[in-house]
Amino acid sequence: MKPPPFEYTAPTSIPEVVALLQEHDFEAKILAGGQSLMPLLNMRLARPSILIDVARIPDLDYIRATDGSIAIGAMTRQRSVELADTVRTSHPLLYATTMHIAHPQNRNQGTLGGSIAHADPAAEYPALALLLDAEMRAVGPDGERTITATDFFITYLTTSLEAAEVLTEVRLPLLPPRTGWSIQELTRRHGDYALAGVMATITLDGGGQCTEARLVLFGVGATPIRASNAEQMLIGTKPGQTEFVAAAAKASGDLDEPLSDVHASAEYRRDLARVLTRRALAEATANAAGAA
């Protein structure tokens, strides 16, 4: 297993990257931490003619607490997110999400931006981006633009980034007060991609009524999937087991044909989505009741 031949370049500025992408179009592939791309190259499932290594560009590696969100440079290693005090204290859901990604040995190399731009439907960061309505900043020939998560993930390994655009920053909103969260995954081994996963947040008012519910299912379709109908069923209720069961049935029932592969059938994934959703809603609600 050796990669097919390719040219390699390591530009030191974003305008250089954009120029290279314009020159090579879809023949070029951006190399960030390589934890997804390199296996694809080794197995010759990808054959780009040139790799553009963005690791030598200064100023793409940062974690900044801004007003109401955390802004993270696209080349920030997942391990840096894991070890940053500001992430642990101000965004525990981001920390917990990061700890679900592969292993420390992969997180040392893998980047937040790389995971989001790669858009694997079973990966954690794309699901989190969709859950939180994250904003992706990208630079292309026409300058910078901001893409919301809803418009970002198009289909399997495909985003709305244009051929000559490069992701530079991801902004992840902080959770509102009185909000609980949960991540539920089933993996065959710790650190593997999830057969199916669910992320949820529940916001309660002072009287225990649900004012906001967010629910994302991942690993069960071509992109992470926001379960809007199920969310609506929870808002205005004092959510309990009855509501969790009904919303979970709705979320899993609304799925188009889930993925089917050697690891799990579509039917199994749909049922798993239902069970994990119920658990996620229960845990998020319990945490919301305890959250300040």
């Binding site: 390699y8 390589g34 080794n42 040995q105 992969n106 190399q109």
Partner: peptide, 27 residues
């Protein structure tokens, strides 16, 4: 495994444990 899963090839890169089978020498 040559795709970053088994960890046999783990080395330290600037002090951090990484898989050397899914890292290019040029990196």
């Amino acid at each position: 495994c040559e795709h970053g899963v088994c960890g046999a090839c783990t080395i330290l890169w600037n002090g951090k444990a990484v898989r050397s089978c899914i890292m290019l020498a040029v990196q």
